[in-house]
Design a protein around this nucleic acid. Sequence first.
RNA 1: GCCACCAUAGCUCAAUUGGCAGAGCGCCUGUUUUGUAAACAGGUUGUUCUGGGUUCGAGUCCCAGUGGUGGCUCCA
Length: 603
Amino acid sequence: MSDERYEDSQLYKIRHSAAHVMAEAMLERFPEAKIAIGPPIEDGFYYDFDLPAAINDEDIKWVEKRMKKLLAQSHRFTLREVTPAEAREIFHDQPYKLELIEDLVNGPQDDNGGPIAAPADRLTIYTQSNFTDLCRGPHVESTKEINPKAVSISLRRPAGAYWRGDEKRQQLTRIYGTAWETPQELRDYRARLEEAIKRDHRVLGEKLDLFVIDAMVGKGLPLWLPNGAVLRDTLERWLRDIQIERGYLPVVTPHLGNIELYKTSGHYPYYADSQYSPIDVDGDEFLLRPMNCPHHCRIYSSQPRSYRDLPLRYAEFGTVYRYEQSGELRGLTRVRGFTVDDAHLFVRPDQLLGEFMAVVKLIQHVFGALGMSDFRARIGTRDPDSDKYVGDNILWEEATVAIVDACEELGLDYHIEPGEAAFYGPKLDFIVRDVLKREWQLGTVQVDYNLPERFDLEYVDRDNVKKRPVMIHRAPFGSLERFIGILIEHFAGAFPPWLAPIQAVIIPIRESHNDYAVEVEDLLKTRGMRVKADLQDRNMRSKIKQHRQMNIPWLLIVGDRDIENRTVSVRLRSDENLGALPLAEFVGAARERIDSYSGEIRL
RNA sequence: GCCACCAUAGCUCAAUUGGCAGAGCGCCUGUUUUGUAAACAGGUUGUUCUGGGUUCGAGUCCCAGUGGUGGCUCCA
């Protein structure tokens, strides 16, 4: 047990050093390759190369083999300090290194030209075997410290990556590797990866008949199958009820709107790359809407408003369409048409903090009820050097302060990331990771002084003066599609009973038990449960297997004894057999589990 | 969008140097009537992603497109 930072750990040094050894092997295979950078990352390391030709599986195998051989030869890592001139000489045929050297010498800068560190007059290089890299370290003393059997580079496919993360610059080949202290840890890692694939929402979505994405309909446009639609509908109704309790008002608006709407809102230029082409309607241009806010603003403007009317909380499960880059599409987590569990709150300035906190509490409630505790909260603020934002500095500052105050007040563990704001205002996002550790933004709350200005929204205050409301945009799920994708992985397809598309299946042991099975089915249906009797002409054991694989919470086996005693024999999806329960007892207990939104399936 | 890889039955996958397109599961029919994860038998299932090209002959080789996967860039 240690709480040392990853950067200080032996594993970090092992991975960093393994990256250098991989680069050495790569340069033997491709002597004309140019090397870029090769840092340790979570679970491993990578190195970026500019290669003369595409790399294939054979190359990877060769490099991996060679790399392991080099590791086994116990080469020392030696550190040397050099002057910039010496460094330029050493890396004279490595243009990427030369660029890095110049940056270090001039003093590294962030993306906006702000200084990160002072200009360097000495640089450090590390050498092992025949390979020297510009590097700050740290490294292991010797390759002896790295077990070749705990290293692999063939586990993940080579990938493309832009030099310095800039899509306008050279695209490099990134080779990923993983390295651990022991071979057993590598085996465990492999096993974790395999487990993760089984939980992948795209795999489970097919297995559990939740959704399909059909090329003829269009990529990024999921089709919800009955099981998935039930899941989605259940979530929607659950959130809708919670919101109604908290004073939200339902509204319904169309999926497209006149382009003037988006020009007024200011969205139009910002979404130019990610919206579908305008549709010509009798000479006017219409957009498939990329967001719902302008429609809600117009609802606000449809009547004069008094300070007494505020806050107004308009809620809609609003479907939006965004033309996402094809390479970005992925299952349900990144699609081109999705439904935002949207609401826009129009509030007086004096109500802002309270309303904002209420929204954060609502999101915490939603996440908490689903057992999702593994998220991080990010406050996205304006990047001070960028001009992609609209609105007054003072308003931005006010909004940012309001968000930080609310988070402090709620004791939320947040961190601030400049440049992550919406174009119209700062925001608080809830970010989770999927099974493959990719991060996805789910819930979001945004404070906005700009749209009220642009749409000239007003209310008449107590002193009979017209004033501007403040808007809060918020979506606890973010989008139904992404949220459900994450939820599938969170539960590994074994949903709590209240969410399970089918809560119980009744399995008659023999055909002669079918009537009783139907009777039980009807009774449970009248008690509002989602159940079905499986009357297929096949044996009981195969039915148990089939429904077990679909993660049905409760399997109810019924035979002669059950008919005689008015019972059902309950088998849980955890494979636990509860034996015969009186019918009424089962219904009561099951309903209690469902009504309490419990994840518990034992009765 | 960019780099790389992949595409064979509803699903998972085979098919030797270019030489008759297959298996398991599923599905259909019949037999069987089963007390907790697969009864038995028979049958069915193909534009080998699409379009070109090379060849006596292409699932296999080449080109283009489409779709998918991994990554980058972007994002709910």
